[in-house]
């Protein structure tokens, strides 16, 4: 059987999906990137290989997305290296062809994608600031002494969510401390935090966007039922969370790899090969481009970062 591998390497988590020709998921995994995308992908590949054992699947094409897509694309000899906005849109429209709005909140970024007739017509992504993303929620969960996995369930038990200043993470945090100290209940604060995340989202990247149903909510934070409910209250419509919502980027880029028709040899053995990256500053002008070289078993396979031809590192040097 022919299989297509999609890998989504985010700042916080790394996701992998293997699909067949009919977009059925044959194997999938979600694990922490831990600041080392190459190792995370190696761990990911080991798990996926195990899941596929005995299934006679031959990976013919690989797609990568997420912030480390280029690096991992070079490592896995990918056919498709795609930005996460397109990957998410393709993944979601494949599973939910009628979707109009995609909310996505990940570890350090959040985005909104507006879809009309299956086409992306508008999108936005947070810039400069990670307020209201997964990493904010998990650090606040830590502060409150609850695990982030239980966060949503606790939020649902609240009858009157505490108002928490949502505009900025720093202010939200000091407001939260203040509200806790004057005696607000923990579940109300937690529900308030979920609300704050949503308010922040709607007022920042959602600003001026035509939010229409059906709405699909995905990314790691979509697993938080408290945030899901806060979204539903805010937009006054049902918000769908796909059980595979956290894998949507990887799924989308697997679909893109399949659609591309480009087949390149891939073997799970890359998990055992040594990859190294080195970075250096190009000394040829005052711009000092940071050039990254990727080595596979000490052989240079790719490089990037140069702004002009003077800084180009030729393969085979």
């Amino acid at each position: 059987m022919r299989g297509y591998l999609g890998i989504d390497i985010g700042s916080i988590s790394t996701k992998g999906v293997v699909i067949d020709e009919n977009n059925n998921i044959l194997a999938s995994e979600y694990l922490w990137t831990e600041g080392d995308p190459m190792n995370a992908v190696k761990r990911l590949l080991k798990v996926l290989e195990k899941q596929l054992q005995g299934k006679d699947v031959n990976i013919v094409s690989v797609g990568t997305t997420g912030s480390a897509r280029k690096l991992i694309g070079a490592m896995t000899n990918a056919s498709v290296v795609k930005n996460e906005i397109t990957a998410h849109a393709i993944g979601t429209t494949t599973l939910h062809p009628d979707v109009r709005t995609i909310f996505e909140i990940g570890g350090q970024d959040s985005k909104i994608i507006i879809i009309d007739n299956g086409f992306v017509v508008d999108y936005a992504m947070n810039t400069l600031c990670a307020a209201g993303t997964g990493s904010f929620l998990s650090s606040q969960a830590h502060r409150l002494g609850v695990s982030v996995e239980d966060f949503g369930e606790i939020a649902l038990t609240s009858k009157s969510p505490t108002n928490i200043a949502a505009r900025c993470t720093v202010f939200a945090e000091s407001d939260l401390v203040h509200k806790a100290q004057i005696g607000h209940k923990k579940e109300d604060i937690i529900a308030g935090l979920c609300k704050a995340v949503v308010t922040n989202y709607i007022n920042n990247i959602g600003k001026g966007k035509r939010i229409q149903s059906p709405i699909v909510f995905q990314g790691g934070v979509s697993k938080n039922v408290g945030v899901k409910k806060a979204f539903e209250d805010a937009v006054g419509a049902e918000v769908l969370v796909d059980p595979n919502g956290h894998l949507m980027g990887a799924f989308g880029v697997a679909v893109l790899a399949k659609k591309s028709g480009i087949e390149k040899p891939f073997s799970f053995d890359v998990a055992d090969i040594e990859f190294k990256t080195t970075g250096f500053e190009c000394p040829k002008c005052a711009n000092h481009c940071e050039i990254i070289c990727v080595f596979k078993d000490d052989v240079l396979i790719d490089s990037w970062g140069n702004k002009c031809d003077n800084g180009a590192v030729k393969i085979g040097q």
Binding site: S67, K82, N83, E84, I85, T86, V120, Y123, M125
Partner: peptide, 8 residues
Amino acid sequence: TRLEAFYD
């Protein structure tokens, strides 16, 4: 990332 998505 945004430019790529814009092109797509």
